[in-house]
Design a protein around this nucleic acid. Sequence first.
DNA 1: GTAAAAATAATTGTCGACATTTCGCGTGTG
DNA 2: CACACGCGAAATGTCGACAATTATTTTTAC
Lengths: 229, 229
Amino acid sequence: MRTRKSAKEKTIEEIAEKIYTAILEHRLAPGTKLGEDRLATIFGASRTRIRDVLAHLANERVVDLIPQRGAFVAKPSVEEASDVFEARRLIEPGIIRRLASRLDSKMLASLREQQRKEAEALRLHDERAIVRLSGEFHNLLAELAGNTALIRCMRELSSLTCLTIFLYDAPTATSCRAADHANIVAAIAAKDSAKAEALMLQHLEAIEKSLKLEGARYFADLETIFQDI
Amino acid sequence: MRTRKSAKEKTIEEIAEKIYTAILEHRLAPGTKLGEDRLATIFGASRTRIRDVLAHLANERVVDLIPQRGAFVAKPSVEEASDVFEARRLIEPGIIRRLASRLDSKMLASLREQQRKEAEALRLHDERAIVRLSGEFHNLLAELAGNTALIRCMRELSSLTCLTIFLYDAPTATSCRAADHANIVAAIAAKDSAKAEALMLQHLEAIEKSLKLEGARYFADLETIFQDI
DNA sequence: GTAAAAATAATTGTCGACATTTCGCGTGTG
DNA sequence: CACACGCGAAATGTCGACAATTATTTTTAC
């Protein structure tokens, strides 16, 4: 009964977290306008607070903040999407290498727990949770690896990946990824860093190739296309 | 005569840029308190704007924003410092690879111009500009490489490196880096990506090794040390 | 004389209101 | 009938003031 009250949440971080997960679960579609007054009444907060929240989300790149226009759910372009994947191919093998070298039983338990959640979401066919948890898996790897700089990078990259999947992905691709995560965890648990890194690269390439980046371009960049003609 | 007026700057980005370079040039030492009222009167702006500026700088990790306490110039810990270097060793070779594969004459001209600035600062023994420009060099590589995600990562990493150098570096180490940059540019210009990547790794390792991470710990964490005793 | 405690001063967090800009709609004109 | 101009409404940017918390100083007790 406590958490049922959708309004009257207090902390800035609570509000930010709610909008954040709403975006990552595709309850808020990319491009959606996030009006300040509207959010203020919804969360029972003042516009000042909402403004802080939106600024925070903008810095995590899940919303675009356009001057004199307002805040919109981020809508990564095709170029940004492939940039994100390229960055992930650089960073994530390094994260895995670091994690494998300092893995302990506590970390392994975290990974198992994460896998349990993913399996549960998959069992329930909860598409929204599946994609969100899939991103959280990669964040968890970074957090367990323990490099603060890489943690921040990964958080941003996985958020953008999440948005990209909703924008450009064929819905069939979501299901085939669960096994990938399990294989990666197995290789990490076996301290076989090389194998885990290779699996991660395959995983990332598989996701990127499953995206329909060409066809979607027509709709996404419509205005910029005609800008040049 | 226009830019001489130190007060009455208008835009948020202008103010942020000024504080940003002041921090990167070590005019503001790590740990310095950045009071809102004070900055507001200095820049002739309202506290609301200064608040936005500080939030922006906090998201670039050059200031720490402590609740109910205010803003302070960031003071990277030893762990954060080595995390930053580890992240750079992952990312920067990738940036170079990408840059080398799409280098054109315009990009090369940018690199030459940057080298000219660095040489000039070195000639004038402008220590502050040397370190700042040294960081900008790495940012420029990322920008020319063109990956938006990596550009943001690099900007944060180079800022933190800049602060780390001021906190932990022996002053002798600043001079030996100019040649490193020239060699890297030469290898990139020759499209020898492998050599440029290797030089970059050596460069990063040389910087990290020149840091006095152990001794400095005594002074940096003095209060936290006695907290436990 | 020292140390704890209370009062004071200063700083940050929050709010509501005003100013400015943008967007939607209606009207007018060619 | 189509297009453009202009007006009105709504949203964002900015400010000053009040509330709440923290830091400092003074007072008081031992």
